[in-house]
Design a protein around this nucleic acid. Structure first.
Length: 639
RNA sequence: GCCGGCGUAGCUCAGUGGUAGAGCAGCUGAUUCGUAAUCAGCAGGUCGACGGUUCAAAUCCGUCUGCCGGCUCCA
């Protein structure tokens, strides 16, 4: 028999007989514990793949990212097998591994119930016990089509049928269950040690709402029970910082059935938090050469027609009639800004013009997508439209990216950046789109920002750069966005007189920094777990008296703090100190100012920080300076 | 919008066809307290809404509404 030479990950070589299973060389030469797969050359393969030529061989550990994906993929197959055992009528479709686990989509006459999940889990454990070998088979395409047709697995037939006729396909077999799959997989069901089915949901076949809705079962799996437990624990912890829960507990906002879905009602503390953010934003924009503007909530239908919104955004808009004239409730802020630009003859000397508006917009979102503060039907954008000469475009985009990254740094957010290109439904010429996309891409490159590309995900009027933040449950939300637009200036016939005395067309950038104030607050709540830094906290200091004797001094302290613009509240209730501290603590107020007989005697206060630290008795002025310093330094990165 | 689950006191939740419950919050009284819950008493609900089945519905069925988990869509 011929020999082949394999190169291991430590760059040593082994000479083995051709046709040796990869797993056979594991024991004498590899420090990878618990491998689940092997990479031969660039291909990820099953452990018992036969090695028949010279190549690099690298074992994949079960706790590596790739290893976990293999493990979870195998568990998704195990689940499919269990489901087929329990419900022979269901048809299997696809079941990949995903970020934190896996899912499998089934076409079933009767939807699964939560109780079914337990049964399926039990059946999976049973299959693990049976220690079924998982075997790869390669089959001619037509043969595979025939196999799945006789089994009634029409989705599999559909998938295979789309492959080129000459191509052979691989199948995986465990017990009497056989599934079309690229692999690789674990060698046996018994290698599966820890898994949990986590959810049940509808999902369209191939992700299109025109297709049949399938039943999706989500699950997760880990190399061992301990890490599974740790993962589930983490999810529990994340749920505790869910902004919907904290929003209620901290009494920031509420959503009322009687007011309507997706409509936020801010309670005093939430409204204050929001105002603090907005004040911060106005200040930052004025510093950067933006001008504050404000448009109306409703504008005549003709204007929306002119802008293209009526053709491209109608299903998301609300309409109303005033004095027999049709109006559209604004879903975006750009229109009024166009009018402002056109309100006078513009010179190149004025450009760039940067119009900033905290603009409240209404969008008709489908009922099923509404989600706390992060997906609503009325929200306020920190919106700006920058009108500039084409040659200023690049610098303006760079300024915005800088603005965004600076602001995100203040809050301590990391964000993922994506470039979105022309969607199917859009307006404008190919050339415009190309220029706009190039401009955005050039800026991203100049900033050395790593980004992904989302083909076809742009706005209808132009491509965009999106900055996405994650919530505590790892759902990703778009916040900042920069959109390049050559179309609206055209539609509104915007112009400026250049140095040459001729009329020219300006270019427009739409951009938001926080995105939607609502969404940003939601993510902020989760980011800080409700414990806002002092500069953002709606209540910065809670004054707590120990007994009635200190009321007079406490009132005086309160007045002094308010006079220095410190957001302080007074707790004079006849309750124990412990009780009042606990309550302030639960409300996550940054400082509690304890006033007892000792403090009153020397006209001082004893601040206790949210972290539990007692700062000792100090004069009121000293605390004021301390807090002011803390607030200033939190925003220091912005000047 | 689609699939599934859910809606009981301000909040968290128990209650599977037969007189609506608990803890916390609230109110009243006592207690005047030194760094995360003082004690006692009282009050609080057309069980999301409407319709149906039944001698009888929080409970079973239907419609609507809202919320939750996803899918599609999106800031």
């Amino acid at each position: 028999m011929d020999n082949v030479t394999v190169t291991l990950s430590d760059n040593t070589h082994r000479c083995i007989a051709a046709g040796t299973p990869a797993v056979d060389i594991l024991k004498d030469c590899c420090d990878v514990k618990n491998p689940v797969a092997v990479r031969i050359g660039s291909r990820l393969c099953d452990l018992n793949t036969l090695i028949d030529h010279d190549d690099r061989v690298e074992f994949i550990a079960n706790d590596s990212a790739e290893g976990l994906a293999v493990l979870r993929h195998s568990v998704s197959h195990l689940m499919a097998q269990a489901v087929k055992n329990l419900f022979p009528d269901v048809k299997v479709t696809i079941g990949p591994s995903i970020a934190d686990g896996f899912y499998y989509d089934f076409d079933t006459p009767e939807p699964f119930t939560p109780a079914d999940l337990e049964k399926i889990e039990a059946e999976m454990h049973e299959l693990v016990k049976q220690n079924l070998p998982i075997r790869r088979r390669v089959m001619a395409r037509d043969e595979a089509v025939e196999l799945f047709r006789t089994k009634g697995e029409t989705y599999k037939v559909e998938i295979i049928s789309e492959l080129p006729p000459s191509e052979s396909v691989s199948l995986y077999e465990q017990g009497d269950f056989i599934d079309l799959c690229r692999g690789p997989h674990l060698p046996s069901t018994s290698k599966i040690k820890a898994f949990k089915l986590t959810g049940l949901a509808g999902a369209y076949w191939r992700g299109s709402e025109n297709n049949k809705m399938l039943q999706r079962i989500y699950g997760t799996a880990f190399p061992d029970k301990k890490s599974l437990q740790a993962h589930l624990q983490l999810i529990e912890e994340a749920k505790k910082r869910d902004h919907r829960k904290l929003g209620r507990e901290l009494n920031l906002f509420n959503i009322y059935d009687e007011a309507g879905a997706g409509l936020i009602v801010y309670h005093p503390k939430g409204a204050l938090l929001r105002r603090i953010l907005e004040d911060f934003e106005v200040k930052q924009h004025l510093r950067r050469g933006y001008q504050l503007v404000k448009g109306p909530q409703i504008l005549k239908l003709e204007l929306w027609e002119k802008s293209g919104h009526l053709d491209n955004y109608r299903e998301n808009m609300y309409f109303t009639v005033v004095d027999e004239k049709q109006y559209g409730l604004k879903p975006m802020n750009c229109l009024a800004h166009m009018l402002i630009y056109n309100s006078s003859r513009r010179s190149y000397k004025e450009l760039p013009l940067r119009f900033f508006e905290l603009g409240t917009v209404n969008r008709h979102e489908k009922s099923g997508v509404l989600h706390g503060l992060t997906r609503v039907r009325e929200f306020t954008q920190d919106d700006a439209h920058i009108l500039c000469m084409p040659e200023q475009l690049n610098q303006e985009i760079l300024n915005i990216i800088r603005f965004i990254t600076d602001v995100m740094e203040v809050f301590g957010f990391e964000c993922a950046v994506e470039l979105s290109t022309r969607p199917a439904k859009s307006i404008g010429t190919d050339l415009d789109w190309q220029r706009a996309t190039d401009a955005l891409q050039a800026a991203l490159k100049a900033c050395d920002l790593s980004y992904g590309v989302n083909a076809g995900d742009g706005a209808f009027y132009g491509p965009k750069i999106d900055f996405k933040l994650q919530d505590s449950l790892k759902r990703s939300w778009q916040c900042a966005t920069i959109q390049c637009d050559f179309v609206l200036p055209e539609r509104f016939d915007l112009s400026y007189i250049g140095a040459d005395g001729e009329k020219h067309r300006p270019v427009m950038l739409h951009r938001v920094i926080l995105g939607s104030i609502e969404r940003f607050i939601g993510i902020l709540i989760e980011h800080y777990a409700g414990a806002f830094p002092a500069w953002l906290a709606p209540v910065q200091a809670q004054i707590i008296t120990i007994s009635d004797e200190q009321h007079e001094w406490a009132h005086e302290v309160h007045a002094r703090l308010l006079a220095h613009d410190i957001r302080a509240e007074l707790d004079l209730r006849n309750e124990s100190l412990n009780f009042k501290i606990r309550e302030a603590q639960v409300q996550k107020i940054p400082y509690m100012l304890i006033i007892g007989a000792n403090e009153t005697a020397v006209h001082g206060i004893a601040p206790r920080s949210r972290t539990g630290k007692n700062l000792g008795c100090m004069p009121v002025d000293e605390f004021i300076s301390l807090l002011q310093l803390e607030c200033r330094s939190a925003q220091q990165k912005l000047h």
